[in-house]
Design a protein around this nucleic acid. Structure first.
Lengths: 203, 203
DNA sequence: TCCATTACCTACAGCCTTTAGGTAGATGCC
DNA sequence: GGCATCTACCTAAAGGCTGTAGGTAATGGA
C-alpha cells in the first residue's frame, strides 16, 4: 500500500486548514487521520499527541500573523501604520478563524518566548515609534494595542457584534482611531493606584 | 442509598467552581459525577449534556460579572467609574479564571441576547455617559472598552505578560488611563475607509 | 541486492459522552 | 398508615477520541 507522505509540517498545515474550516475543536487526531486516510496511531510518528498538534497550529498562526503584519506596515508610519497593522491582524483572523483561535491558546512562558508572537510585539513597538512615547510607555502601549486587537477580534469571532447596529466594521475603524487618539494623548501623569486615586482634575 | 440532591443550579455552581479550580477543560460530566459520587448518566436528568453544562457556567459568569461591575460603579462617574468598572471586571477574572474562560465561550446571537452580557454592555454605556459622546460614538466606545477589558484579561490569563517587565498591574492602569484619554479625545472626524484614507493632518 | 530506516499498521486499554430502560426513595392524597 | 406517583438515581451498552506497544512493509543508500 502506498504511503501518504506525512510529515510534521504537512500535518500541522492540514490541521490549521481543518481548524479554519471546522473550528479548532474539530482538530483531532482522528479527524486528521481520516483526512489522510490513515490510522490514528500513525500520526504519533510525527506529532507527540493532540495537544502537541494544536500547539503547532498555534505556532504556525503566530508566524503567519507576524509575516502578514510585517508586510502590511512596511513603508508606513504613525496612524497609517497603526491602521495597516490592525487591519492585517483582523484580516488574518477573518480569513483564518481556526488559526486565529489557535493563536489565542495559552502558551507557557517558554513557548511564548519561542513563538513569533514576540516578532509581532517588536513590530508593534516599532510601529508606535512615531508617537514619541518613552520606553516604559511603549511597553504599556504595545500591550494596549495587543489587547484591543485581540479583544475586538475575539469578541467579533464570538458573535458579540452580530445582529446589532452599527456593524463591526465601523466600530473597528472607530476603535483604531480612538487608539490613535490615546497614543497621541498618552497620559504622562504619575499612575494612580487604588490607594491613591488621581484627582478628578481633568474631567 | 441517600440522594445527592442534585439540581441544575447545584450542578452549574459546582461546574463553575471546578472550572475555577482546575480549568474549563476539566469541566466534564465525568468529573462532576465523581465530585457528587454519582453516576454520569444521572446528570442527564439535570443538564442536557456537556455543552449545555458549560453554557450554563458561561451564563452564570455573565451574571456574576454584571453584578460585580454594577456594584463597583455605583455612585461613581467618569474616569473613576471607568477604573472601577475595569478593576471589577479584571478582579472577577483573577478570582474566577474558569468562570472567566467560560464567559469567553462563543454564544449564538440568541444566547448572547439572553445573557447578562447585555446588562454589562448597558452598564458600560451608562458609565461612559459622562464623556459626552453621541449615541453612535457610544456604541463604538462600549465595544472598544469591552475589547480592551476582554483582550487584556485574556492575554494576561494566557500568560502573555508573565516574566516580562514591567508587571501586568502597571500596564493595566496605564491601559485604562489611555482608554480614558481616548474617550476624552474621541475622534469626531468622519471615519476613514481603506478607499478614502483620512489626511495625515493631525499627526 | 541487501539492509537500515521509517512510515504505517493491528491490537488494545482507558476515558468521556450519550441513550435506553429499570429501581428505589420521596411526596402527596385518602 | 397505605398506596399511587413522581423523579432521582441506577445499570448496561455503544460509540468516539487519545495514547501505547509491538509488528510489517515500503524506501533509499551502499
Amino acid at each position: 500500500m502506498p504511503r501518504a507522505g506525512l510529515t510534521t509540517e504537512v500535518l500541522t498545515r492540514a490541521a490549521a486548514d481543518l481548524a479554519d474550516e471546522a473550528g479548532l475543536e474539530a482538530v483531532t487526531l482522528s479527524a486528521l487521520a481520516r483526512r489522510f486516510d490513515v490510522k490514528v496511531a500513525s500520526l504519533y510518528a510525527h506529532v507527540a499527541g493532540a495537544d502537541d498538534l494544536r500547539l503547532r497550529v498555534a505556532m504556525l498562526a503566530h508566524t503567519e500573523i507576524a509575516d502578514a503584519t510585517a508586510e502590511a506596515v512596511a513603508g508606513l508610519a504613525g496612524r497609517e501604520a497603526l491602521h495597516a497593522l490592525a487591519d492585517a491582524y483582523r484580516d488574518h483572523a477573518r480569513v483564518h478563524p481556526g488559526r486565529s483561535a489557535a493563536a489565542r491558546l495559552p502558551l507557557t512562558p517558554q513557548q511564548a518566548a519561542a513563538s513569533d508572537g514576540v516578532r509581532t510585539s517588536r513590530l508593534t513597538a516599532a510601529t508606535l515609534r512615531g508617537y514619541g512615547l518613552d520606553e516604559a510607555a511603549t511597553v504599556h502601549a504595545v500591550r494596549l494595542v495587543g489587547s484591543v486587537l485581540h479583544g475586538f477580534v475575539s469578541l467579533e469571532a464570538s458573535g458579540g457584534f452580530d445582529h446589532s447596529t452599527p456593524g463591526a466594521e465601523e466600530s473597528w475603524r472607530a476603535a483604531i482611531e480612538a487608539l490613535d487618539a490615546a497614543l497621541r494623548h498618552w497620559p504622562t501623569t504619575p499612575l494612580a493606584t487604588p490607594a491613591n486615586p488621581a484627582p478628578g482634575a481633568d474631567r
